[in-house]
Amino acid sequence: MTEFSIPTIDIGPYLTPGASAATDEDCAAAARAIDEACRTVGFMQIVGHGLSDDAIAGLAGAIDEFFGLPPETKSQYRRIGENRGYAPPKSESLSMSLGVANANMMNDFYESFTIGTHASTYPGVDLPVDSYPDNTWPDAAPGFRPAVQAYWDEVTAVSRVMLRACAEALGLAPDHFEPLTDHSIDAMKMNNYALPPGAVELDGDLTGMGAHTDFGILTLLWADRVAGLEVLGDDGVWHPVMPADGALLINLGDAFARWTSDRWKSTLHRVNPPVIDGRIERRRSAAFFFDGNHDAVIEPLPGTLADGAEPYPPITVGEHLDAKIAGMKRGVAPADAAREAARVLNAG
C-alpha cells in the first residue's frame, strides 16, 4: 500500500493563451499529473491558478460579514426546496446523498450560503427554473454580493481551464466537454463551522459535514488552513488533508466517475473541525461546484470503459443532481448509491 498523499500540480502553463498539451511540454506534464491524481486519489491541489489575492481576501471577508450576522437575520435569507440561499446548522445531511443516515437525520452542524447560475445567466436558452433558480442576496451584508461575485468570476475561469486540462489528460480534444457545459449549472457553497455558543450542543460526537462524494464534474475548494477535512483512502482509512498556502483543492465529482466508469475517482470526504476548550475551531470554506448542463447525458467517454467493465446507466446531470440534493436536504436516499454507502460504513 503506497503512502496516501494529495499531489500538488502547477496549472500555470494552461493559463497561457492557446496552450495545450498537444503543443506544450509543460502542459503535457500537467495533464499527465492530473491523470495520475484522478486515477489514484481523486484529489489534487493546484498552484499557478491565477486567482488574485484581492479576490480571495474579498471572499473571506464576505463570509465573515454574512455569518457574523445574528441568527434571526441570517434566517431571513433561507430558502426551502431550492439549492440557493442560507442553510442553518443541522438542516442538511451530506451523508444522506449516499443513503447513509446519521443517528439524528439532519446532523451536519455547519451553516452555509449557496449561490449559483440562474436561468437568466444564459439568455436565449430555455432552462428549467428548478435547476437554475434565482439567487438570494443578503442586503443586511452590503459587502457580500460584490465580493462574492468578484471571486465567482475568477474561479469560474479557473474551472474552465481545469476542464480543458482534464480533457487532454483523458486523451480527448481540449474542447470535448464544451457541448456538455455551455449552460452549466454552477454553484458555490460558502461554509462556516465556527458557530456561536449555544448554536449546537457539544455533547457527544459531532458531524461537521458528513461523508459524501461531490455531485458534478469538478469542485474547486478554497479553505482556511485549519484541520477538519478528511479523505477516505483505498486503505479504508480517513486521512487528514489541509490545503497548502495559496493552493486550491480540486476533487472530482460523480459525473467524472460515471463518465470514466471509475477510471477516475469521485472520492469520499468529510469535514470535522476540532473542538478546542469547548468551542469549535474557526474554519471557513467555499466550494465552487462545476456541474455541467442540466440536460447533458452522463455516459462512458470514448476510450475509458475497460474490457469487461460495467458502465453506469446513463443519466442526465439534472436528474443526478436532483437525486443527490434530495438526499442532502430531505433525507431521501438515492437509488444507486449502494457502492459508496458501503465504503462509508466499512471505513476505519
Score class of each variant (00 low, 15 high):
2 T>L: 08
3 E>R: 06
7 P>Y: 07
8 T>Q: 15
9 I>A: 05
10 D>Q: 04
15 L>A: 14
18 G>W: 02
20 S>A: 14
23 T>P: 01
24 D>S: 15
43 F>G: 03
59 L>T: 06
63 I>K: 01
68 G>M: 09
69 L>E: 11
71 P>H: 13
73 T>M: 05
73 T>F: 01
74 K>R: 15
77 Y>A: 09
77 Y>D: 12
82 E>D: 11
82 E>K: 12
82 E>A: 14
83 N>D: 15
84 R>C: 12
85 G>F: 02
88 P>R: 12
91 S>Q: 14
92 E>P: 06
93 S>F: 06
96 M>H: 11
96 M>F: 07
99 G>F: 11
100 V>K: 08
104 N>P: 00
107 N>V: 02
113 F>I: 13
113 F>K: 11
117 T>I: 04
119 A>P: 05
119 A>Y: 06
124 G>S: 05
126 D>E: 14
139 D>S: 15
141 A>M: 13
142 P>Q: 13
143 G>Q: 11
145 R>F: 11
146 P>I: 13
151 Y>L: 08
160 R>K: 14
160 R>L: 10
163 L>G: 01
166 C>I: 14
169 A>C: 04
171 G>S: 09
172 L>N: 10
176 H>F: 15
176 H>G: 02
177 F>I: 07
178 E>H: 04
179 P>W: 09
179 P>N: 10
182 D>F: 05
182 D>W: 02
183 H>L: 01
184 S>P: 01
186 D>P: 03
186 D>F: 03
188 M>D: 02
190 M>A: 10
192 N>M: 05
192 N>T: 00
196 P>F: 08
199 A>G: 11
204 G>Y: 07
205 D>T: 13
205 D>I: 05
207 T>D: 06
209 M>W: 07
211 A>T: 10
211 A>C: 08
213 T>A: 12
227 A>F: 00
230 E>S: 13
230 E>D: 14
233 G>W: 06
241 V>A: 10
244 A>W: 00
251 N>G: 03
254 D>Y: 01
256 F>P: 00
256 F>I: 13
258 R>W: 05
260 T>C: 08
260 T>V: 08
264 W>C: 09
269 H>K: 06
270 R>Y: 11
273 P>K: 12
281 E>R: 12
282 R>M: 07
284 R>P: 00
286 A>N: 04
286 A>K: 06
288 F>H: 11
293 N>K: 07
294 H>M: 00
299 E>S: 11
301 L>A: 03
302 P>K: 11
303 G>S: 09
304 T>I: 02
315 I>G: 01
319 E>P: 08
322 D>I: 07
327 G>R: 05
332 V>K: 10
333 A>I: 10
333 A>F: 09
338 A>F: 07
339 R>T: 14
339 R>F: 13
341 A>H: 03
341 A>F: 01
342 A>W: 05
